[in-house]
Simulated assay, not measured.
Amino acid sequence: MVSTGMTDLFIKTGVARSLFAGVCAGFVAVAAGVVGAPGAGAAEAEALALLKGMTTYMGAQQAMSFRYDADLDVVTAEQQRLTLASSGTVSLARPGRIRATRSTGLADVETVFDGSTFTLLGKQANVYMQVPFKGTIATLVDELKDKYRRPLPAADLLLPGAYAELTEGVTDVKDLGSGVVGGVECDHLAFRKKDVDFQIWIAQGKRPYPCRYVITSKTVPGSPQYSVQLSNFKTGSAAVGQSFAFVPPPGARAISKDELKTIKSMGELPSNFVQRGTP
């Protein structure tokens, strides 16, 4: 599921290459590893065991919610690295319901999936798009990534089979000891593969959830990164926002998939970032 393709962009008058098509898609698909490779040391085995424990714990949660803060780097043609920041929330109930928000200051978007209908709401423009879709959260994640180019935050850490995905093609594994993220003591792990490196900080104790996840491209000059940090992580009956029925806001207007492309406040990138070849 690793995707490291790049998209050429203009920033006003300058050309840039960003991780939008690659590392942002790595929001829902990245990372590492040959498990149990010959010669793997005790530290590598411990790091893989910690990663396995995290994915097993996350996969066992039938309901969860969290807040997130994400940073996406963009490298301009002049080799200046810029960072786009966003925040939001995620709430899900397995197997097939999820609600997520994303705010960038320029965009305020909410996605809702109730198991049979996917809804995308642009709060600033007060418009929404709905498409019939039946399936699980896992199938929805692939649909959003591949068809709509709208990866869900930290999705590759939430899905069944996360350990296999995260440990595909690893060339190096490191256990870097402890770190503290948002006041939570974590185990800090680092993994390498051909095109990307990634690091993950996993909460210590009985709730080994991912506190921070950082992906670094090794194929783009400037080594831009995508990072996501989780907070207010809750599971089970304590999970917040467990309502997945979409109710249009007053005055909201339904739009088509074609019209969605014209609503700038619902884009993944600021309006002054224009894909190469577009006016």
Rank of each mutant, 00 (worst) to 15 (best):
L157T: 01
I263S: 03
L157Y: 02
L269S: 06
V170H: 01
I202V: 14
E259F: 01
A37T: 04
G277V: 08
K264E: 15
G182Q: 05
E168N: 09
M266R: 09
D8V: 13
S3T: 12
G205T: 04
Q229R: 13
P221I: 10
R150I: 02
D172M: 08
Q225A: 09
T13W: 07
G205S: 05
R149Q: 13
S87G: 04
F133I: 03
V181A: 04
F66T: 00
T83E: 09
L72T: 05
L82P: 01
R212C: 10
V220L: 12
V15N: 06
G161M: 05
K234E: 15
L82W: 03
R97D: 09
E165C: 01
S231F: 07
I215Y: 00
G115L: 03
E44Y: 00
Q242K: 10
R102F: 03
Q79N: 12
H188K: 14
D8T: 13
A77H: 02
L48Q: 11
K218N: 12
L48G: 10
Y148P: 08
L9K: 01
A47K: 08
A245M: 02
D8W: 02
T89E: 14
K145R: 13
M1E: 10
P132Y: 06
T136F: 06
K234C: 03
K193G: 15
F246S: 03
Q124I: 13
V220F: 00
V75M: 04
T7Y: 05
G251Q: 03
L92G: 05
V35Q: 11
T104I: 08
T136W: 02
P279T: 05
S3H: 08
V214E: 14
V30S: 13
P250K: 11
A70F: 00
C186L: 02
S18W: 03
D187K: 09
S237Y: 01
R94E: 12
G183L: 05
S3L: 14
P221R: 10
D195L: 07
Q229D: 05
Q204S: 06
G26K: 00
S223T: 06
D156K: 01
V131Y: 00
N126A: 09
T262V: 09
G115M: 04
S103D: 15
R17G: 15
A47V: 11
Q275K: 12
D172W: 02
F66Y: 15
Y148D: 09
S116I: 02
T89S: 11
C24W: 02
K206H: 04
R81Y: 01
Y57I: 08
E46N: 10
V180D: 07
A16I: 08
F27R: 04
S237H: 05
A100H: 00
R97A: 15
Q79W: 01
G88T: 08
Q204D: 07
A238G: 10
R149P: 00
A125K: 13
P221V: 10
A238P: 14
C186Q: 06
D69R: 14
P250A: 15
R253I: 12
K52L: 14
W201M: 03
D142Q: 13
A162P: 09
G122P: 14
P151I: 03
T56A: 14
G22R: 03
C186T: 15
G88F: 06
D258E: 14
E259C: 03
G183P: 12
